[in-house]
Simulated scan of single mutants.
Amino acid sequence: MIRVLIVDDHESVRRGLSALLAASGIDVAGVCADGVEALRAVAATQPDLVLMDLAMPVMNGVEATRAIRASRPEIRVLVLTAAQSGMVQQAMDAGAVGYVLKEASPADLIEAIRLHAA
């Protein structure tokens, strides 16, 4: 079973993603509202994949991706973002394995998670 940590600053997004992933047979290792919380949660839960928003307070997704990949290179980071921007390329440069736009269908998101978690 794939273990995914969800990182997004919007509570409704975290809740919706948690429900979607659980219904799709994916284990939700935890949910976080910013990059600092994500770093702590990665250490505590050891997920296979982190589903990472980019624009967040405290520590953004690019910084969090860089820190996760530096400390735990076996953990994959998949960016989930509202818009394709320069931050997506920065996240890829920081070690993200790919990205999915928030407007993607639930099926496409689940497929991306399964593809990138392996």
Rank of each mutant, 00 (worst) to 15 (best):
E111K: 14
P57S: 12
E63G: 05
R14E: 01
A38Y: 03
G98N: 07
P47E: 10
A117H: 03
A118H: 08
N60A: 05
L39D: 03
A43L: 14
L101R: 09
R40I: 09
G30T: 01
A67P: 07
R14D: 00
Q46K: 15
Q90W: 05
M92Y: 10
V42T: 07
R114H: 10
G25Q: 13
V13Q: 00
A38D: 02
V58S: 12
E37I: 03
Y99A: 04
V88C: 11
S85T: 15
A82D: 11
R66P: 03
E11N: 05
G16V: 01
R72M: 15
L5K: 04
L78H: 07
D93A: 14
A91I: 04
E37Q: 14
M1L: 13
E74I: 12
I6W: 00
R14G: 00
L49W: 09
R40D: 14
L109N: 04
V42D: 05
A104T: 12
I110K: 10
Q89M: 14
D8N: 03
K102G: 02
A43I: 12
E63L: 08
L115S: 09
V7G: 01
S71G: 15
I2L: 13
S24G: 12
R14T: 00
A104I: 10
V7I: 09
A94I: 06
Q46S: 15
A19V: 09
A94E: 04
G30C: 01
R14N: 01
A112Y: 07
L78W: 04
Q90Y: 06
M87W: 12
Q84M: 13
Y99I: 06
G35W: 00
L109E: 06
S12I: 07
G16L: 01
M1Q: 13
A70H: 12
V50G: 06
C32P: 00
V31G: 01
V77P: 03
P47Q: 12
V97S: 11
A117N: 02
V4G: 05
G98R: 05
Q84H: 14
M56V: 05
R76C: 11
Q84T: 12
E103Q: 13
A83C: 13
D93K: 13
G30Q: 02
E111T: 14
A33H: 04
A67E: 14
M56Q: 02
R14A: 01
L39K: 05
L21E: 01
A107K: 12
V97T: 11
G95Y: 10
G98P: 00
G95K: 09
A83M: 14
A38V: 06
S105Q: 13
M87F: 14
S12T: 07
P57H: 10
E37T: 06
D53Q: 04
R72S: 15
A96R: 02
S12E: 04
G95W: 10
V28A: 01
G86D: 13
P73T: 15
A19I: 06
S85G: 14
Y99D: 02
